[in-house]
């Protein structure tokens, strides 16, 4: 007999209990917990031991370089990759990538991937019966400019169902992959849209137990970025962890 899938109420109760315990503890957390049971796939995939403190050295003080040779500027426009116009709400998403000291991360690679307007990925393992869009791959890449700014033209992704529990739906999001100036700044995350009614129900979003920290993943609608009769503009800035390289080391390797 296959077990009945758990209900949203079961997940909600676990999310609420963890949130309550976090408030009681009074110690600020800024990253997701890797041990977060409401996201069932994390149960066997999180380390049980605390990470070990390391002082970055050698290669860890540097990051891979990407350049014009790696990226075609057209890869930043997800609405032109297949010839036709994709279905959905055309949008621009732009922002700055900075390090923990607020310095721009210049000429560095940003990669994104996302579902189409109906909430469907091109991925072969995506079981959602929503239609694929022949005009949309949902993959983009760009380099930040000298001010750390990235920019993508795309369409707003739809929410999509998944099988964490019965009637589980992911809030609409765009996956972002980022590099800094140090290896230690490498990160992958998800950008969300303001006011999504699924936030409270989503164990991946709620794995960041601090409400202020969660909000750092939510873009803002910016009317000044919207283009009349063409697209809607969203802004989302990204802060990487601090860089460890000293100015002296910079000089040594120049």
């Amino acid at each position: 007999m296959t077990p009945q899938p758990e209900t949203q109420a079961v997940i909600d109760a676990e999310i609420a209990a963890t949130a309550h315990a976090y408030e009681q503890a009074g110690v600020e957390e800024t990253q997701p917990r890797v041990d977060y049971a409401p996201y069932r796939s994390s149960l066997l995939r999180h380390p049980t031991k605390d990470p070990h403190h390391a002082d970055p050295e050698g290669i860890e003080l540097w990051a891979p370089c990407f350049g014009e040779r790696d990226i075609d500027p057209l890869e930043a426009d997800l609405t032109i990759q297949r010839g036709g116009e994709p279905q959905g709400e055309k949008m621009l998403v732009t922002g700055r990538v900075v390090d923990g000291d607020g310095r721009p991360v210049r000429r560095q690679l940003v990669e994104i991937w996302q579902a189409n307007a109906g909430g469907r990925y091109i991925h072969k393992r995506d079981q959602h019966p929503a239609p694929l869009d022949p005009s949309f791959t949902g993959v983009g890449r760009c380099l930040t400019d000298d001010d750390g700014t990235y920019s993508f033209t795309t369409i707003k992704p739809g929410p999509y169902p998944w099988r964490n529990h019965l009637n589980a739906w992911r809030p609409a999001h765009i996956h972002f992959s980022l590099f800094g100036t140090d290896f230690t700044q490498r990160m992958i995350t998800q950008m969300y849209f303001p006011g999504d009614p699924l936030f409270a129900l989503d164990p991946i979003y709620q794995s960041i137990v601090d409400p202020k920290a969660r909000e750092r993943l939510v873009s803002t609608y910016d009317h000044d970025l919207s283009v009349p009769e063409v697209l809607m503009g969203y802004r989302w800035d990204i802060v990487l962890t601090g860089s460890h390289r000293t100015p002296l080391e910079e000089e040594d390797h120049q």
Partner: peptide, 12 residues
Amino acid sequence: STLTATPGQTIG
């Protein structure tokens, strides 16, 4: 560091 880092999320 003076700014708080953006949280990560699963690669999915």
